[in-house]
């Protein structure tokens, strides 16, 4: 990688960030809905858990789980997958292909740039929720550090999942159905809606065999100490491995797809 490449990546990320901030109400509403989801989650799980515990989560643990879910969910849905999909569906990809940049890398820089737009509110919201709802503290200082590392992996993983979903537009010519499927898999199999520990064993197996679980369950398990330090490091290594597999998998799909691109009209 050259210095120039990073300069281009930074330029793409900044442009995407500015584009996201250009629509401040859209941005504000999406954060607001995330906060609403957190409040609804807290109310539902408060009544379900009461003074006992479910799947090994007591009420303090569940508060921590839901707040981490708010943070990871805000980040995971913070990017602009629709913008990527629209460029393919509207044929604007023909402009992108006349530029001297690696298509996937440019889209990654843009996507991560758009995700950065939600970082301030995601962090502020998380801090406010911690102060307000007093959840269980991290299992240790090391666990807190590893949780942050695990959350950082959401940036490249979210791009890869969304980019792979967007590439399907070349085959389906529509994005809406693909987006519903991707969002459904991501929210359910990550444990964002129901913690994976509460799912049937076979479904837990499926969750752990897919990348989605590393969006919410992995960071919250590390934070709450539900796994020891070697296990936490192992899960972070799996997040890195998924990132690499999805990144190069997307490259393989792209190589096949680009041969079949059809852009009609001027």
């Amino acid at each position: 990688m050259t210095t120039h490449s990073f300069a281009v990546d930074r330029a793409f990320a900044i442009i995407a960030l500015k584009r996201k901030l250009a629509y401040r109400w859209n941005w504000a509403f999406s954060i607001g809905f995330g906060a609403l989801g957190l409040l609804v989650g807290l109310a539902v799980w408060r009544s379900l858990i009461g003074s006992g515990s479910l799947g090994g989560y007591d009420w303090a643990d569940m508060r921590a789980y839901l707040i981490i879910g708010f943070l990871t969910g805000t980040l995971a849905w913070g990017g602009s997958d629709w913008q990527m999909a629209d460029r393919i569906l509207d044929g604007l990809i023909s402009i992108d292909l006349t530029k001297p940049v690696d298509f996937q890398r440019a889209r990654a820089a843009e996507y991560i740039g758009s995700m950065i737009s939600v970082v301030p509110t995601a962090v502020l919201g998380t801090v406010a929720a911690f102060l307000l709802f007093r959840p269980a503290p991290p299992a240790s200082a090391l666990a807190a550090g590893l949780t942050i590392l695990s959350v950082l992996f959401i940036f490249p993983m979210a791009f890869c999942v969304n980019y792979l979903a967007v590439l399907m537009c070349f085959f389906t010519r529509r994005y809406l159905g693909i987006q519903w499927l991707k969002d459904g898999l991501l929210s359910f199999l990550s444990g964002l809606v129901v913690p994976v520990a509460l799912m049937p064993i076979w479904l837990q197996g499926l969750c752990w065999a897919l990348p989605f679980v590393h969006f919410t369950t992995t960071p919250s398990n590390i934070y709450l100490g539900r796994i020891d330090t070697p296990g936490a490091l192992g899960l972070i290594a799996v997040q890195a491995a998924w990132t690499i597999v999805m990144w190069y998998g997307a490259r393989l799909i792209w190589r096949q797809t680009i041969k079949k691109v059809t852009i009609h009209g001027g």
Binding site: S94, L97, T98, I258, K259, V261, T262, I263
Partner: peptide, 8 residues
Amino acid sequence: KLLTGILK
């Protein structure tokens, strides 16, 4: 599009 490399 063929001459610019967009299409194969």
